[in-house]
Amino acid sequence: MAKGEIVLGCLAPHPPHVVYAENPEQNEAFSEGGWETLRWGYNRLARKLKTIDYDAMVIFTPHWQTYIGTHFLGLPEFKSKSVDPVFPNIFRFNYDISVDVELAEKMCAVAGETGIITKMMRNPDFRIDYGTITSCHMLNPEWDKPLVTISSNRNAHYYSPEVMNEQAGALGKACAKAIEDSGKKVVLISSHSLSHRHFVTESPLPEDMSREHIYNHSQYVWDMKLVDMMRGGKMREVIDIMPEYTEQTIAETEAGGLTWMMSAMGYPDYPAEIYGYQSVIGTGNLIAAWDPMEATREIVL
């Protein structure tokens, strides 16, 4: 069997607003659009994904929060409705997803062997979080690939962002090994915003773009610093400053997604593809991808 490999890594923010703005038939709420910079960026990355041969998507989500280890979805199918607890007015999504249980079990086992606390999630009533759904829908609106969701262990809360970085890095390495052993071609998804301070009020029409802007300039400057480093292929450095960045901007990187993905991909030293940056309810959201194949790597924006 040929070795498995990671064929693409995607930073895919999940404000449910972007799904709401697309008006897919699965979502009950109706919008007049909004957040085009992000949506068009997502559309372009989704087109790139169509050109790539892969077996499964593996997604790390901040909205399945676990305190007792890292958990993996462990049943082949989940079909239900996901309602965002924070923005129920815009996100009530009927989903029907398939899971690559074999790959999930492999990652769970390899992570367990390296000393990481793990658990398979096998309760059929379990509801899929809106982070998973938003990122996966925007990257693959056809939903024609199985996925694996990995929960985010909240060690930044329990210990510190430094500990988060260490543990997410170890999990990334273990997942990469499991993927290699599986013989599968996998797309990794790190589902989160960058800076993450929200406005606590919402305009009467959430998609009113005259009201949308970053929470404050400091958040923006930090986000741009990260984007510059990503363009420059400095992912090791990005992960090194992750604790400071996370604390300064209360970034959603606190869940460990970016560290996990970069560790699994060996801390790329090649430029990231940048697909778009826009604020959603004050938070900073970047869509980016890391393509290990030089021949297909693009300068997008």
């Binding site: 399945w64 929060q65 676990t66 305190y67 007792i68 958990h71 607890p85 924070v86 923005f87 658990k119 999630m121 096998r122 309760n123 009533d125 379990f126 509801r127 929960s151 929200h198 606590v200 009020t201 919402e202 309810i281």
Partner: peptide
């Protein structure tokens, strides 16, 4: 364990109904 961001949310569905599963303790049942 009900965090909100947009102000303070108050449940007003007359008969909310679901099968809930906990994020950590899913193995204890629904």
């Amino acid at each position: 364990t009900w965090p909100s961001i947009i102000g303070h949310q108050i449940q007003a569905h007359p008969e909310p109904e679901w099968v809930h599963v906990d994020d950590d303790f899913h193995y204890l049942g629904s």
